[in-house]
Amino acid sequence: MSEHEHHILPFKLYLKIFLSLVLFTFITVWVAQFNFGSLNTLIAMIVATIKATLVALYFMHLKYDDKTNAVCLLAGVFFLVVMFAFIAIDVASRIPLESTL
């Protein structure tokens, strides 16, 4: 069995990732001030996803690991999106009904 698995990353890379994460946190806070209406949640989600991928790829070694680990992460997220999408379809397409009594 080749000893490829214990990937050791340089200290600098960890530092760079950490600093960019803090930077993105500033961006999240900064972008939250402008009111884009319902778009706000979407933008916040996008920035948070960028930060999450950074943590997952480098800190959690997903980049250097066997691809099945990444599939686990993505499967979880995918079925969450499916759940959200179908419930949102239902909630959005309900026809509100008023009582005429």
Binding site: I89, D90, V91, S93, R94
Partner: peptide, 22 residues
């Protein structure tokens, strides 16, 4: 199997559009 659960809720107040998809 993760896309079909709404067929338990056709008459439960779920919107008919969602019911049709399920």
């Amino acid at each position: 199997s993760f896309f079909v659960w709404g067929h338990h809720m056709f008459v439960s107040g779920q919107s008919s559009f969602a019911g049709i998809i399920f």
